[in-house]
Simulated scan of single mutants.
Amino acid sequence: MTPGRRHGRALTVLLSALLAGTACGPVADRKPQDLRVGYDSLDGSLAVWPPRGDLSGDAATTTAVTDAVRDWRSPADDRAHLPSSGILFSGRVDGAPVALVAADVPGESASWLLQLTRDGDRYAITRATEYTDPGYLVYSDVLPVQTAGGRRYLVSARVQRLLGPQGRALTVADGLSAPVDVPACTAVPVTATLRATESLPRGRAADRLLDLGTGTADPRYPLVRDESGTGRRALTGLDTCVLAGDRGPFGSIPRRIGDRDAPRSVPTSWPMAKLTVRSLGEVALGGGEPAELQQLSWDTDAGTMTAVVYRPADGSAPVVSPADRATPLQTYQLPVPGQPLVVLSWRATRDSSLSVPPGTPLLVERPGLVVVPEPSRSQTFSLANTDKTHYRSITPR
């Protein structure tokens, strides 16, 4: 099974307490074998996820959706726990029946957002994304929905107003927003205003998210928390489909289940929140115009990850490295066309000293940063501090 998730945010804990304190459970007249419609979570007296959609009261639809969810398996072959899952929306969208289910998968300590459409007299799961933020999916307030008409968002009852790309207010009916044009491979902001509730006595004027684009492939969840707004700046000019690739920052560290990689699961390096960027300075290669070198940082459910971005001076496409877990000595393999590089970064102090293999040409050398050509064979670099020496090895790709 996947590693246990980290503890959720304070809001998650508070809402869990509210749920337990109000003794909310499955609706009394619901058939035990069927999914609940809506979700039994309260924020004070507010039902956070009430039943939505014009088919939410249709028993046959609920049974058909339940049957499809019961048969579904995650990439790790785990199933949803029906009593702790729920149908958040069931209704016609763009003329076709659609259901959205928050599926609890205890075997992975995970929550999944399942999107279903009707296929004859049955329902079939057409989208399945794993919610990688700590806590349960139902403690989020904005969920992504992909329909024939474009991207939509399903919002909780806490959402008072929703702004899409370009800061335009989106019309919301029965919890579902109007379609909005979201690019396939460009991050765009989505901002919700949350009303005052027991858990948020003053509400929240700007609950910021980034939508990584409609090209984000399942099971990767496309919304990333961006509370400070730094993520929007960090991803400016970057192709999110490249970032999500097997050699991109967000997709390069596969999840492991047991002793094996699980390529069909969400990568361990997939972003969850706190995307930031800082400049590492300019780098001039071969006498050319200096390019800007940046370091991306973001939170995942496995800790902090980093990567570097090389932005050419001529405005051509940026080059990105695979992810590296946050360590005292960061190493990045940067596939610059015609001159692949290795970037080494650390927090320089009076007592820190970097050692490189003899004969290694230093293209850039300054406190906290060294850039060298990618070696033709495996090489080891070391960073000596007062209390410990850190070693990192680089193997040619």
Rank of each mutant, 00 (worst) to 15 (best):
Thr126Met: 03
Ala124Ser: 13
Ala124His: 11
Leu82Lys: 06
Gly91Thr: 01
Gln146Ile: 12
Glu130Ile: 00
Phe89Leu: 10
Asp71Lys: 15
Val98Cys: 02
Trp112Asp: 04
Pro144Met: 11
Asp141Cys: 02
Pro134Glu: 08
Val145Gln: 09
Asp94His: 10
Ser140Ile: 00
Ala103Asp: 02
Ala128Tyr: 12
Ala96Met: 10
Ala96Arg: 15
Leu137Met: 08
Asp119Pro: 00
Asp71Ala: 15
Ile125Phe: 10
Ser85Cys: 05
Leu88Lys: 10
Tyr131Asn: 08
Thr117Leu: 09
Gly107Ser: 10
Val138Cys: 01
Glu108Thr: 03
Arg122Ser: 13
Pro106Thr: 08
Arg92Glu: 12
Ser74Leu: 06
Asp141Lys: 06
Ala102Ile: 01
Ala103Gln: 04
Pro97Glu: 03
Ile125His: 12
Ser111Ala: 13
Ser90Leu: 07
Pro144Ile: 01
Arg122Glu: 11
Asp104Val: 04
Tyr139Phe: 12
Val145Thr: 05
Val105Tyr: 02
Thr132Ser: 12
Ser140Thr: 11
Gly86His: 05
Trp72Ala: 11
Val98Asp: 04
Val145Ala: 08
Ala102Tyr: 01
Arg70Trp: 00
Pro75Ala: 09
Ala103Phe: 06
Ser140Phe: 00
Ser109Leu: 06
Val142Tyr: 05
Arg73Pro: 00
Gly91His: 06
Trp72Pro: 08
Arg118Asp: 03
Phe89Val: 02
Asp121Thr: 14
Gly120Asn: 06
Leu143Tyr: 12
Asp104Asn: 13
Pro134Ala: 11
Trp112Met: 03
Leu143Cys: 05
Ala96Cys: 01
Thr132Leu: 11
Arg70Leu: 08
Ala110Asp: 14
Arg79Val: 12
Ser85Gly: 01
Ala128Asn: 07
Arg70Thr: 14
Ser90Lys: 04
Ala96Gln: 15
Ser140Leu: 02
Leu114Lys: 08
Arg92Pro: 01
Thr147Cys: 05
Val105Asn: 08
Gln115Leu: 03
Phe89Ser: 05
Gly107Lys: 09
Phe89Asp: 04
Asp141Leu: 01
Val145Ser: 09
Ala110Gly: 13
Leu113Gly: 04
Ser111Arg: 06
Ala124Met: 04
Asp77Thr: 13
Ala80Trp: 00
Thr117Cys: 02
Ile125Ala: 09
Thr126Ala: 07
Tyr139Gln: 12
Asp94Ala: 15
